Simulated assay, not measured.
Amino acid sequence: MPTYWGRLAESAVGAHLVNAATEGNCQLFYWRERNHEVDFVLRQGRKLVAIEVKSGNLSGTLPGMDAFARKFKPTRKLLVGTDGISLEKFLSTPVGHWLTS
């Protein structure tokens, strides 16, 4: 069940971000390099926001987020779900908020 919930949470976040990208508010990407990944990357002009979705207990660091941050110096790094922004809050907040705050 935890794996299923994790997929649902990540899909919900993705759908929320795709809607914003479709409206032209930002561009949406996925990043992977070797065994490091970031679930979602938003770009608006020169602003980059890296987003990782975690539905279970966070065990330590986020190596993908750390590798992305070293390479691209994002404006913001967001953790959605456990130990971060609640899924409910993230989904009820316009995507533009995360690009400007």
Score class of each variant (00 low, 15 high):
residue 5 W to C: 10
residue 35 N to A: 07
residue 39 D to Q: 04
residue 63 P to I: 00
residue 71 K to L: 15
residue 98 W to F: 15
residue 69 A to K: 15
residue 64 G to E: 04
residue 27 Q to V: 09
residue 3 T to R: 14
residue 83 D to C: 04
residue 92 S to V: 02
residue 4 Y to L: 11
residue 61 T to S: 15
residue 18 V to I: 13
residue 93 T to G: 08
residue 40 F to I: 04
residue 8 L to F: 07
residue 77 K to H: 03
residue 84 G to Q: 06
residue 75 T to P: 14
residue 77 K to W: 00
residue 47 K to F: 00
residue 57 N to V: 03
residue 80 V to C: 10
residue 19 N to M: 14
residue 73 K to R: 11
residue 36 H to F: 08
residue 44 Q to R: 15
residue 1 M to V: 10
residue 25 N to A: 10
residue 57 N to G: 02
residue 67 A to M: 09
residue 29 F to I: 12
residue 40 F to A: 03
residue 85 I to D: 05
residue 97 H to A: 12
residue 5 W to D: 00
residue 83 D to Q: 13
residue 58 L to I: 06
residue 77 K to Y: 02
residue 60 G to C: 14
residue 13 V to F: 08
residue 7 R to I: 05
residue 101 S to E: 06
residue 52 E to Q: 15
residue 62 L to P: 13
residue 16 H to R: 12
residue 46 R to L: 09
residue 8 L to S: 01
residue 63 P to F: 00
residue 86 S to F: 10
residue 13 V to C: 04
residue 49 V to H: 06
residue 42 L to G: 11
residue 98 W to Q: 06
residue 1 M to N: 11
residue 83 D to L: 07
residue 25 N to T: 01
residue 26 C to T: 02
residue 54 K to G: 06
residue 49 V to I: 04
residue 63 P to Y: 00
residue 25 N to Y: 03
residue 9 A to F: 13
residue 1 M to T: 12
residue 19 N to A: 14
residue 13 V to D: 04
residue 28 L to H: 10
residue 64 G to H: 11
residue 2 P to R: 12
residue 64 G to L: 12
residue 23 E to Y: 02
residue 100 T to H: 14
residue 59 S to W: 12
residue 22 T to I: 14
residue 60 G to N: 14
residue 45 G to A: 04
residue 89 K to C: 06
residue 97 H to W: 07
residue 22 T to M: 15
residue 46 R to F: 00
residue 36 H to R: 14
residue 21 A to I: 12
residue 32 R to N: 11
residue 33 E to K: 15
residue 69 A to V: 09
residue 25 N to I: 00
residue 41 V to M: 13
residue 42 L to W: 07
residue 55 S to T: 06
residue 75 T to K: 15
residue 23 E to P: 02
residue 8 L to P: 01
residue 15 A to T: 08
residue 63 P to G: 03
residue 28 L to A: 07
residue 19 N to F: 12
residue 66 D to W: 00
residue 54 K to N: 07
residue 69 A to I: 02
residue 98 W to M: 02
residue 85 I to A: 08
residue 63 P to N: 01
residue 27 Q to F: 14
residue 7 R to L: 13
